[in-house]
Amino acid sequence: MKKKLRLLALGISGMTAMGMTLAGVPASAAPKAVTTGGCQDKHICLYYNSDLKGAMFQHRYNISNYAGYVFTASDAGSAGAGQPVKNNVASADNADAGNGIRIYVNSNYVGDWDGVPPWTWRNLDVAKNNNASGKWDH
């Protein structure tokens, strides 16, 4: 809960910094994202906010520990830019047609995971703000 509030605060300050106003943009009314927002072929794109919004980090190969990586502003927004990727991912877009990917809650592909099938996006549940490693799968 505390984490959510902190993230919300960051999101709001990010949006304010961009000169956007919150008026008339209730989060619950946000349409389901269907755009890929510039995720490159064969990459997994990890977003700071739900519904593929905010700053993004993409990778093509397995990452056994997300520590040390940071989000950068994307077509979908800048909220979270500069924040660490580890334990801060809310949604993921798999731009690979052939392989799914598992986002694990611990480093070295250990613990429970959220699977993201090929050419599918989803809001994370298991690994939401709790992502430590990512490995390609079927």
Partner: peptide
């Protein structure tokens, strides 16, 4: 597509971390 390679056998295999001292003595936490 490329083969998936390593993955846990199921949801509980590494859910609680390592469990076998014979394995950890060689491989550590991974």
């Amino acid at each position: 597509p490329p083969k998936p390679g390593f993955r846990p056998r199921n949801r509980t295999q590494y859910r609680y971390g390592v469990s076998d001292p014979k394995v950890t003595a060689m491989h550590g936490f991974a």
